[in-house]
């Protein structure tokens, strides 16, 4: 039961990301933002705030009223939530709780969103200083995809 539900989740997320990638072809900013980033390894991290819902394909405005989620879990070979919407200046944190290594790497070349290899428990932080849509994937498992939408 649980497994089936999860599988369905993967399909939904995949469809949503394909849609976003399609959109990004005409709306993505090509300029790489001058953002600062840092990565740290902290296996003792607690209190990870999970996504308010797993509905990755919802319109981004629906999340505007909710508390902004700036944490992305990497679990069971998926980014959750697959899409986060944050205002400019937000630091987003990814935490890998899989035993397998993963990366957070921009699909667009030239973007500085690019983590080192993240082993189990590792976190990667990135501060978004420019509005736009940021698509990323894991270079080791490129079927794992996610998007950060940064609002002005």
């Amino acid at each position: 039961m649980r497994k089936l539900k999860y599988t369905k989740g993967i399909w939904v997320a995949a469809v949503a990301v394909v849609g976003l990638l399609g959109l990004s072809a005409c709306s993505a900013p090509s300029a790489a933002p001058a953002a600062s980033s840092q990565s740290t390894v902290d296996s003792g991290m607690t209190g990870m705030s999970m996504a308010p819902s797993g509905t990755a394909g919802q319109s981004t405005s629906a999340q505007a009223g909710a508390a902004a989620t700036n944490s992305v879990a990497i679990k069971d070979f998926a980014f959750a939530p697959a899409t986060v919407t944050v205002p400019v200046g937000t630091t987003v944190t990814w935490t890998n709780s899989d035993q397998d290594p993963h990366t957070v790497t921009a699909t667009e070349s030239g973007s500085p969103l690019r983590s080192p290899t993240m082993n189990n428990g590792a976190t990667y932080k990135y501060t978004f200083t420019k509005a736009g849509r940021y698509d990323y994937l894991c270079t080791i498992h490129p079927f794992m995809t996610g998007t950060v939408v940064v609002t002005p």
Binding site: K3, D76, F77, H141
Partner: peptide
């Protein structure tokens, strides 16, 4: 293929 949520070792 498809056995479980992810291609984990």
């Amino acid at each position: 293929p498809g056995d479980g949520p992810a291609p984990k070792p």
